[in-house]
Write a protein that binds this DNA or RNA. Structure first.
Lengths: 363, 363
DNA sequence: TTGTATGCGTTATCAG
DNA sequence: CTGATAACGCATACAA
């Protein structure tokens, strides 16, 4: 039942006024060294810690950042969260993490509610089909900055940090084409998401450049998770003729494709080439290891947090749209169609450095 | 520059006193229907939302839960966090997520600081070597409940939700022994962590029961990450005679073993059997798929959150130590030593249901 | 049943 | 430089 120690008690102990204590703590005025010492000593000995609540109420702003994400169990997001948190921590900001669970109403409720905490800023990876832009503008009009990550809701004109989705998808698709594939299929994410739409664009551009045409049934929309990727792959692989290569627009769905291929006894890459997007740590351990487009999750979060904190610091500049590069990482799930794997194209044996270590170094 | 709307404005708009508004919101007194309607209408039309800060300050408690974890990018933890968050959300509690980064001082600083937010309760997965029990007791003496998850710091006598670590390790080891292995090695987590120590105990017990003795060099301590697992595996696999089976005390380290084996051109399971712990979603996609001890991460978090909220609700009972069951999941990384894989023991082909779906269903 | 007034722990403004 | 004192937005005891 230790009562929390307040400024008042510090003031009494140090024999000064409460205002002086505040001045010492916030260096908001010069305090005579003698008093200053006494105050500091009192704070130390009594283990005083300012109430973040009272501070927030008074200052009308806290040191909390809100972060709303679709689902922390999607393995792409932890890295993003970590990037945010590391940057925030260094600047003494804390993160309230909210899983919108891909549910627009839950997302809206989080976004609305976070305002009541007087957060200093909001980071959001918008859910599919969410009509959230209005809520976000409410922040702007209360001068609480918002930065969108990874995707952008309809009608969003503010800051955003994204990756080169179209470019990455283009590279992956071109790679498949260069390996000789012409019957290519794609499994997209929910096309309402800007990143999913962009990836499809990249895929299509590569096809157009190579003058390859595919039927609409070779474009399957799924939900960025393993299960829906698996289902989509089953649909594709039961078609006749079936595709010789599938570009899955994220790794989870690519895993689903892997699983479907395995069940249908299709060898990868001999019978089916698979490329993914994300290049998660695990892609190098799958059977076969997965060729995938790397996107810098940690950097995405860290960059967004830095941008947000600039706004929090009051910096004014035109809405920024930061685009982080993607990069095709070739592994073993892609090969020529229906052919013996040529010498040297097969197993790639690399000792990769831990991605996290690499990413953190770049912060 | 929309000023936030306060109770006072609602009161004016509805033509009542601020106290009445409060009474309507909190149902803390019966309000005449007519006034009540006016207040509710005012709240709706003005988009009023109570300040969580002011409420917290006044009530001396918020609806935030603190959650301190070692590192969200360790793929075991997101499920735990998700379990916590789902339970918390349903009860209208929010989660402040803190990555201690396996750094005891960062952990301590988070734990100390969270108090200043007047959180309703604290959930913590303690870091290795952290002398945090004292800080946690400070919560108890301020009657803020604390529940430890997955591990327990030295000297912790309070609530905890753990898994049957020793039992799981015992099962995995016995399985290896039953396959005929006698030169078994183990790669443990940091032995200061109770869960790591428990897993080693289970391993040892299985060995003792089978009257198998191994040299101390076959017990390698690592850090629960892929890299340290990889290094430990290299040390083990360069020994003569080398182990025919390695039990890695979590899946990340098992992936490291897989990588080391691959580099040394050892076939798994023919030349080396590998068992892990966690049974992450990905274990079924690795090459070969990984035999591993499943621990219910989502349930771990959900259970801990429920226990914590009972305390938050003021329930009094003796400190509880909840033990969730573990379960050996056999896949393809374990086989008999130096032998042809017998018929039927080899490839396992199952269409497993998504773990997340299963876990959520159990909430 | 409703209104008024006080205080939660700070910060910030002003006299002194 | 330092000490009172008034908010910040809300809950609550008490008066009406």
């Amino acid at each position: 039942m230790t009562a929390t120690v307040t400024m008042r008690q510090i003031a009494e102990r140090a024999g000064v006024s409460i205002g002086t204590v505040s001045n010492v703590i916030n260096e908001t005025a010069i305090v005579r060294p003698k008093l200053r010492e006494r105050v500091i000593e009192a704070i130390r000995s009594m283990g005083y810690q300012p109430s973040a609540l009272a501070q927030g109420l008074r200052r009308n702003r806290t040191n909390m950042l809100g972060m709303v994400i679709p689902d922390i169990t999607n393995p792409f997001f932890p890295g993003v969260v970590r990037g945010v948190e590391d940057v925030a921590y260094k600047r003494s900001f804390r993160v309230i993490l909210c899983n919108a669970d891909n549910d627009p109403s839950k997302e809206a409720s989080y976004v609305r509610e976070l305002r009541s905490y007087h957060i200093a800023g909001l980071l959001i990876i918008p859910a599919a089909g969410a009509d959230i832009a209005g809520h976000l503008r409410a922040y702007a009009s209360a001068s609480v900055p918002v930065v969108c990550i990874d995707r952008v809701p309809d009608g969003w004109k503010g800051d955003a940090v994204l990756v080169a989705n179209a470019e990455g998808a283009y590279l992956a698709t071109r790679h498949l084409i260069q390996m000789g594939h012409t019957r290519l299929a794609v499994i997209t994410g929910p096309l309402k998401l800007t990143n999913a739409a962009e990836r499809l664009k990249g895929f299509t551009r590569a096809l157009n450049e190579a003058r390859i045409e595919i039927g609409p049934e070779f474009v399957q929309e799924a939900r960025f998770d393993t299960e829906s990727g698996y289902q989509a792959a089953l649909r594709l692989l039961r078609m006749l003729p079936r595709p010789t290569a599938i570009f899955a627009c994220n790794d989870l769905m690519a895993f689903g494709v892997l699983q479907a291929a395995r069940e249908l006894s299709l060898r990868c890459p001999e019978d089916l080439s698979i490329a993914g997007f994300d290049s998660l740590e695990f892609t190098k351990f799958t059977d076969p290891s997965l060729t995938s487009v790397y996107q810098p999750g940690y950097q995405l979060g860290a960059t967004a947090a830095r941008l947000l904190l600039q706004r929090v610091d009051g910096m004014r500049f035109a809405a920024k749209k930061v685009l982080l590069p993607t990069e095709l990482q070739k592994r073993n799930s892609v090969g020529p169609p229906n052919a013996i794997v040529p010498e040297g194209v097969g197993r790639i044996k690399v000792r990769e450095r831990s991605d996290l270590a690499r990413r953190k170094q770049q912060v």
